[in-house]
């Protein structure tokens, strides 16, 4: 350590503290700005018609995004339905078989999946589903989203179940309960809150995803719940409208952005409150 006069060192320490505080506070500026614009422009676009009507062609006043809201709901629901059983199963395997080759490589695979860019999922699911079926579809969109969600579900299941004391499992086994019943009726219920939180965070993540949907769900101006047809989604609407040349659509994009952000933040909030509220004492 360089030695300087004591007061000088105090001053330097003070200055650095101010610099750190300054940068930390400045980094909140974009958040404030984004929320400000979303609130200002989004509120202006949202009314009852916006939430309940189908889009209208350019030039016609009004129109809404109900197809995108319903489409997003379908996509998220189907993706959750696919990702949760597989993810919980894999997480369970990892928490039970901590060592071993299969666990090691599965963990590596999950890490890779977690770090992969979402557009890559879109490309792969296009090749797997869209190309053989020769049509964009809600199904392919949900598969892409399910793959995005899978790592979150696996991580949270594994972490939650690992934290459950081993004695709980032994208590059930010592009562003569078969292993599979012990897991299904004692271990999983005890970890339910953690797993649910993980699923909610996963849903929040995929709800805002656009890139995997570009060449899978594709978007559609109609309200259609056939899983083999293209379907609209809120993030797709934001993207398509925002990059269109029509100011009228830009306004709608602000409205859709506000709805989407609100939805995602609500999911995060629920997950956060849920973590505290549903916590189980051991």
């Amino acid at each position: 350590m360089r030695t300087g006069s004591y007061s000088r060192r105090i001053v330097i320490s003070r200055i650095m503290e101010c610099v750190i505080f300054f940068f930390a506070f400045i980094s909140l500026l974009p958040l404030t700005l984004i929320l400000f614009y979303l609130a200002k422009k989004g509120m202006a676009a949202i009314d009852w018609q916006f939430l309940t009507h189908l889009p209208r062609p350019v030039g016609e006043e009004g129109g809404g995004v109900v197809n995108a809201i319903v489409g997003s709901a379908i996509l998220i629901f189907c993706a959750t339905l696919m990702a949760v059983p597989l993810g919980v199963g894999a997480g369970l395997y990892l928490s039970e078989a901590k060592e071993g080759k299969l666990s090691y490589w599965t963990r590596v695979a999950v890490d890779i999946l977690q770090g992969s860019p979402s557009i890559v999922m879109g490309v792969v699911v296009y090749l797997w589903v869209v190309k053989p079926m020769q049509s964009f579809s809600a199904l392919s969109g949900s598969i892409a989203l399910a793959i995005m969600m899978l790592p979150m579900v696996i991580y949270s299941t594994e972490e939650t179940l690992k934290a459950i004391p081993c004695t709980l499992k032994e208590a059930a086994l010592a009562l003569g309960v078969p292993y599979y019943r012990t897991i299904l009726k004692v271990v999983i219920p005890a970890g339910m809150s953690g797993i649910t939180t993980g699923v909610l965070i996963g849903v929040a993540r995929i709800a805002g995803e656009t890139a995997p949907l570009l060449f899978t769900a594709f978007g559609s101006p109609f309200l259609d719940i056939n899983p083999l047809k293209p379907v609209a989604a809120l993030p797709l609407v934001v993207f398509n409208y925002a990059t269109s040349p029509y100011p009228q659509w830009w306004e709608q994009a602000w409205g859709a952005s506000l709805v989407l952000t609100f939805l995602v933040l609500c999911l995060h909030l629920t997950a956060k409150i849920g973590t505290r509220r549903w916590k189980i004492q051991f």
């Binding site: 805002g208 656009t210 890139a211």
Partner: peptide
């Protein structure tokens, strides 16, 4: 916040 909104 979803990335599409950052882009927008």
């Amino acid at each position: 916040i979803p990335s599409v909104i950052y882009g927008f």
